[in-house]
Design a protein around this nucleic acid. Structure first.
Length: 155
DNA sequence: GGCGGAAGGG
DNA sequence: CCCTTCCGCC
């Protein structure tokens, strides 16, 4: 799975003419994406963990009961919704987190095209990996051009 | 269960 | 911005 994610990222970037995919320097422990995949999400400075990072983290290390990969590519099933919510709540310091609230956060991902629902399958969602990578790739979308240097008058 | 609006926090 | 909280609706 880990390798296929990278491969998908590679294909996505290749199709964009940006074959600058760096290999992850870290061991295969819990890291699913190279550092650059996270960067914009953390900018500026040190921000909080994002929900999709957390989900990928659990999926990546095969976190037993709470969540697991589904049948299709990128699809995952929440096997124990309230446990997942509790885990997420612990990570965010939100002791009253539950599946109702967590799922609202997941629904906000629909518009961002990070996730979508697998209709008809209970507790089943699907990642848009290529979109995910591209959205978080530095310079995609390209940053606005730097403002022209101010014309300083000589005092 | 699943959806999305509304308000609000950090 | 990225959720968290709450909620009416289907």
């Amino acid at each position: 799975m880990l390798l296929t994610i990278f491969y998908d990222a590679f294909l996505a970037l290749k199709s964009q003419g940006e074959i600058r995919l760096r290999a992850s320097t870290k061991p295969s422990s819990a890291v699913l994406f190279p550092d650059w995949a996270y960067k914009p999400a953390w900018s500026p400075g040190s921000r909080q963990v994002q929900l999709w990072h957390f989900l990928l983290e659990l999926l990546g290390r095969g976190e037993g009961g709470a969540i697991g990969w589904g049948g299709e590519w990128g699809e995952f099933v929440i096997r124990d919704p309230e446990r997942l919510a509790r885990l997420w709540g612990e990570r965010k310091g939100k002791p009253h987190m539950n599946y109702d609230k967590l799922s609202r956060a997941l629904r906000y991902y629909y518009n961002k095209r990070i996730l979508h629902k697998t209709k008809g399958k209970r507790f089943t969602y699907k990642f848009n990996f290529s979109k995910l990578i591209l959205v978080n790739y530095p310079g995609h979308p390209p940053p606005p051009p730097p403002p022209p240097p101010p014309l300083r008058s000589i005092l």
